[in-house]
């Protein structure tokens, strides 16, 4: 038997198979993730009549931005955007303000209960929001804070702080101690060491942490629904879209414009700081 006629080995067969399969899988993944959002955008710039007459078309025949004008003004999405921005920015600011000293304490200072703190954070991270929703709903109803954006911000902070403390702590531990000791010798107190030495060295971690807090606040739905549903002027974009989605008077293409308005800011923010965030979130993965 000559060499050329040798039956194909398992190795060669598999290599050949995966050489074909890999591009197919990649194309499949690209289509299932990119196509829906491509469709979202193209649907948002056409008239509702076009969708009803020709639901199978992928590309609008006539572009229109009236859908955006409608959703932003008539449907009130400008107000919702303002509310979402207030809630998200306030959450980010207060979360950072609380978690920076907390993370520094856990990273550097030996204090009573330091080991137990980790357990508490893990518990809060894994804890089901739906269980927490009940007492908070009742409590905020009783103190008449339900319906206010401040109550919502408070809940978001409590849910983010444990994770952000953990993220920041991991980073603070990589700041060389010698730099801090030098600052201490120069007469810095703990707080001024954090402010003048640790924070300037931790900008990427602060960005990642802020980004995480922003995403949580911008995307959150359950508490926004429970707290704000009766107060239309306080709706966030997520809540607004979910409430209007049920109505038959508002054309689907207009609501699609609303979806783009809701999705675009978070996608931009995410990809602007993506490298920082994914490194922070998966930092433990490399260690196995």
């Amino acid at each position: 038997m000559s060499r050329g006629e040798r039956p194909m080995s398992r190795d060669r067969f598999e290599r050949g198979l995966f050489r074909v399969l890999r591009p197919v899988v990649i194309a499949f993944l690209f289509v299932i993730t990119a196509f829906p959002f491509f469709y979202m955008v193209t649907l948002s710039v056409r008239d509702i009549q076009e969708l009803i007459l020709d639901p199978g078309s992928l590309w609008p025949r006539a572009f229109t931005l009236d859908t955006y004008a409608d959703v932003l003004t008539r449907q009130g999405f400008l107000t919702f955007l303002r509310n979402s921005a207030i809630v998200s920015v306030a959450s980010v600011a207060v979360t950072l303000l609380i978690s920076i000293p907390g993370a520094y304490a856990v990273a550097r200072l030996r204090f009573f209960g330091r080991r137990q703190v980790h357990f508490l954070f893990l518990a809060v991270y894994l804890f089901p929001a739906i269980v927490l929703a009940i007492p908070l709903f009742v409590f905020f109803t009783m103190i008449r804070l339900r319906g206010s954006l401040a109550g919502l911000v408070l809940v978001y902070i409590a849910q983010t702080v444990p994770v952000t403390v953990y993220m920041l702590r991991n980073y603070f531990e990589t700041v060389p101690r010698s730099v801090e000791e030098a600052a201490a010798i120069d007469g810095c107190t703990t707080l001024s060491t954090i402010w003048r030495v640790v924070l300037p060295l931790s900008k990427p971690a602060l960005m990642a942490t802020g980004l995480y807090a922003f995403m949580i606040a911008w995307n959150e739905f359950l508490f926004a629904l429970l707290f704000l549903v009766d107060r239309r002027e306080n709706w966030t974009v997520s809540l607004g879209l979910s409430q209007l989605a049920g109505s038959i008077e508002i054309p689907t293409t207009v609501l699609m414009a609303g979806s783009v308005v809701l999705t675009l800011p978070i996608v931009i923010v995410f990809f602007a700081g993506e490298r920082l965030l994914t490194e922070g979130l998966t930092a433990g993965a490399e260690k196995g």
């Binding site: 856990v106 200072l109 809060v124």
Partner: peptide, 26 residues
């Protein structure tokens, strides 16, 4: 020890008030 507790206290207070106590109440 005191500095550590002082710096971690805002974190602890908010998790206690908005997560732990409500959970017990639930």
């Amino acid at each position: 020890n005191r500095a550590g507790l002082l710096l971690i206290s805002p974190t602890l207070v908010i998790t206690l008030v908005v997560v732990v106590l409500p959970l017990l109440w639930a």
